[in-house]
Design a binder for these strands. Structure first.
Lengths: 335, 335
DNA sequence: TTACCATATGGACTCGAGTCCACATTCATG
DNA sequence: CATGAATGTGGACTCGAGTCCATATGGTAA
């Protein structure tokens, strides 16, 4: 690999001048500039980013920690991150981190990254201790809880999202609505569950424990959704709608219903949250609340670079809006 | 951030000694070692990987170029890559590259990566000119064609995979078998298509052009699969089985069949290739040929590090075995 | 003519860690 | 006791690029 010195020799100038040409600062005579550019061309010279990083104390790279590549929700977020990052000359590394694999945390602190994006469930953030980490490296996170993480964060208002979904179902005449979602240690930190509860209460509807189906926060979301609804069906609990916490759970629910010969949406309506690609693929197409996933990615990068460039210290919290996408899986209650 | 010099000062030794303690080479007195370790602990010192990389001309990182995160096939490959890489102390950056975004190629050559893994369709590899690129940086690729890329590559024998699938269908009594897959410029470079053709011919079956359904190599594989099969159904072309080139196409086909009220596998059998997670999620569960995806990731990393560590120059080609996973979407022809 | 400023170029130091070499010790062996 | 090997430590240079400062030339205004 050719270095700056090689280029300088070939062009008959000093390395300093080569730098000036490359970074376009300081004075360089036109003919010298051309000679240097020619030498660069001939030697196929590409400046060494490692050396540059050492000097500049900025390496133009950040790490992105996720915990499951197979969750399609994160794909679009990642695309948003990549777009925003590359646009500003940043690249990013992907860490597929789980509770067991935290050893890699140290790798991340080795100065190879200007910042860190956390795209993992809250459980993992808690274990890692984000606040402490943020003291050592610029950091931001996406989170789906209604709590203050104490670090720069992007969130969407899932409380409103779920509440709106349930209100919509109630508006269609549904009364026996199954909640399908994750269980948090503290219910009040669970925006989706609270949205469900409040929407029901505001319409004078009781919460029937039999209709509240919690699912552990594991990999196989689709299967888990199917299992919960199969159980409800097996226990002959009556219901006319399912409000799922995400699209994978909703699709799992749809699969269970289809297996039982239950028609969607004539017998039971199903609504999700996220609007992943699959939501528009299944039959019937899933009505769901769209989360602006690539916007989340963009905001995460913006928050990160704000810290890197301007050294912002006070944690900023961004909340992004959502909207219902009406498709075929929901309909009025048949009398 | 504390540096080696800070640690040295605090421990009352020279930076050289700190290096010796860290890398565990050369002689260090026991009490000195302990003092240094204590200083490291107190200062929360982490060696700077950028500086180390500059000196060592090895940065412990490679880039992985893919062209679609949403293709679930690559997830497991990526996991395999990550596992193998992190195990050897390497991290990797993800480049979600498309034909339009090749500008990033230059970023990759800036010495920030020890090697490059290509996980993209052949079309992109061709445009980028892998052979030329391989002269500048260690490189390896996963490919799904029966051609020699001229660089280190991992492949699976898709010809045999498809041929075995079709033979299996023929063994179940099927004669009118739809081929659903991508179209290559040269058919002889299309292992899946050739496998289909040869299996048919070996059983004395003609290739009916109406049964050969090519699909452009675009993002929305699932939808495209559905569309092709819907068209076959609309044109009242008779068939009793679909041999799809991958699981997404197969699932798309299943969706089309279900929409038409065609029973799987009683009326039509469907078989795929890949065995992505979704294959076991759909109803009925998809019979498919499993491709050892995480093994592919492992092999790719091995090939890459062989080059980095031992400077292997002669392109090595690895081929991995496959097997049929029998599930519910295939069955004998009903008379 | 002198003074000053814009233009143009190179020297030398720096970033943080690795490493060769020089220089002290200490210890065992002939 | 002398010699050499094993042990222990630090100085100085290096990796490749950025940048401050010194220097040189040309031009213009006082």
């Amino acid at each position: 690999m050719a270095t700056r010195v090689d280029v300088a020799k070939r062009a008959g100038v000093s390395p300093t001048t080569v730098s000036r040409v490359l970074n376009d600062n300081g004075y360089v005579a036109q003919d010298v500039r051309e000679r240097v550019l020619k030498a660069i061309e001939e030697l196929q010279y590409v400046p060494n980013r490692v050396a540059r990083s050492l000097k500049m104390k900025r390496c133009g790279q950040f790490a992105c920690v996720i915990s499951s590549l197979s969750n399609p929700f994160y794909h679009e977020v990642l695309m948003g991150i990549e777009d925003a990052a590359l646009q500003r000359g940043y690249t990013f590394s992907l860490y597929n981190m789980t509770q067991e694999k935290q050893g890699y945390m140290k790798l991340i602190l080795e100065g190879f990254y200007d910042g860190l994006v956390f795209l993992t469930p809250y459980e993992l953030m808690k274990v890692v201790d984000l606040v402490d980490l943020a003291k050592r490296i610029p950091l931001c996170a996406y989170q789906d809880r209604s709590i203050d993480l104490g670090v720069h964060a992007v969130a969407v208002d899932l409380y409103t999202a779920m509440k709106r979904n349930v209100q919509y179902l109630i508006g269609l005449g549904h009364r026996r609505i199954v909640f399908l979602g994750y269980e948090f240690e503290r219910a009040e930190e669970n925006p989706r569950y609270m949205g469900y509860v409040d929407a029901m209460h505001e319409h004078g509807l009781e919460i029937d424990p039999a209709l509240v189906q919690f699912v552990p926060n594991l990999k196989d979301t689709l299967t888990l959704g199917r299992q919960r609804i199969l159980e409800v069906l097996n226990r002959s609990i009556s219901f006319t709608a399912v409000a799922a916490s995400n699209d994978l759970l909703a699709v799992g629910a749809m699969r269970a219903l289809t297996e039982w010969g239950v028609n969607i949406p004539n017998d039971v309506s199903v609504i999700g949250i996220d609007d992943v690609e699959m939501a528009n693929m299944v039959t019937p197409a899933l009505t769901t609340t769209r989360i602006p996933k690539s916007d989340i990615g963009n905001e995460l990068v913006r928050l990160l670079l704000d810290q890197v460039d301007r050294g912002l210290d006070i944690p900023e919290n961004v909340s992004l809006p959502t909207e219902i996408i009406y498709r075929e899986s929901t309909g009025p209650v048949k009398s």
